[in-house]
């Protein structure tokens, strides 16, 4: 069988979800690290330095194209799996097991993912897109630190960001473990460890992200 066929069975699609998901997890770590520079509270000096590197380094920019590719693959594949799976039980149970046999977030990955996607569209529109546009048209980067400070004064923007982080956290609780299970590492020897690291990751990273709008909004950093 060739690669294409291997990747197109249900297990093959699952492997696509796992690999793209793990790539997105690595991206989250980098993104979180760069943005966390604002917590030096040095008027954005270190953050701007890091953002400048990320925005201009050739390798990083090339990876960014891959990132969008993987992101789109993850979204398209995820949604198509959701609709395909949904069609496999046309006649629904009158009484369902609910939380007795599984966790709500593991059954709600498509919903959580869609919420993250909606957040992401707004997020890219506010920061990423204008910055890249300015780079293209004027050759200069925008002052993203100032942009953040300004945006996060608006209450509803902060609210949307917190909600985005919340959805991300629950999506990760299942996604992190699930990726490793899909790659075959879900044996008893590793399972506990993977679950624990996954939960830790799903709490810490979204929490650091959530702290950013809060810190700006309440002038903890300025």
């Amino acid at each position: 069988m060739n690669w294409k066929l291997y990747f197109s069975t249900s297990v093959g699609k699952k492997i696509q979800m796992a690999l793209t998901g793990l790539f997105l997890i690595v991206f989250l770590i980098v993104h979180c690290y760069v943005n966390a520079q604002i917590f030096y509270n040095d008027n954005g000096v270190r953050f701007t330095e890091a953002a400048h590197f990320m925005g201009t380094n050739f390798l990083i920019r090339a990876t960014e194209i891959g990132l969008f590719g993987f992101l789109i693959l993850h979204i398209v594949q995820g949604l198509s799996l959701y609709f395909a799976n949904n069609s496999k039980r046309p006649s629904r149970y009158a009484v369902s097991a609910g939380n007795a046999t599984s966790k709500w977030y593991s059954r709600s990955m498509a919903l959580l993912g869609t919420l993250i996607l909606l957040f992401l569209v707004m997020h890219l529109y506010k920061f990423w897109a204008p910055n890249r546009w300015s780079q293209l048209s004027t050759g200069h980067e925008l002052d993203l630190y100032a942009a953040m400070r300004e945006e996060f004064q608006i209450m509803w923007v902060v609210g949307v960001y917190l909600f985005g982080c919340f959805s991300l956290a629950w999506h990760l609780v299942h996604g992190f473990y699930s990726a490793f299970q899909t790659l075959g590492l879900g044996m008893h020897r590793y399972k506990g460890m993977i679950k624990a690291v996954g939960v830790g990751f799903s709490i810490i990273v979204p929490l650091i992200f959530a702290a950013m709008p809060i810190a700006f909004h309440f002038h903890i950093i300025n």
């Binding site: 249900s10 297990v11 699609k13 699952k14 799996l81 395909a84 799976n85 496999k88 039980r89 097991a97 046999t101 599984s102 966790k103 593991s106 059954r107 990955m109 299942h174 473990y177 699930s178 299970q181 899909t182």
Partner: peptide, 11 residues
């Protein structure tokens, strides 16, 4: 056969 695909839910 028309079974769904596994999303590691565990039910």
């Amino acid at each position: 056969e028309g079974f769904g695909s596994c999303t590691n839910i565990g039910a």
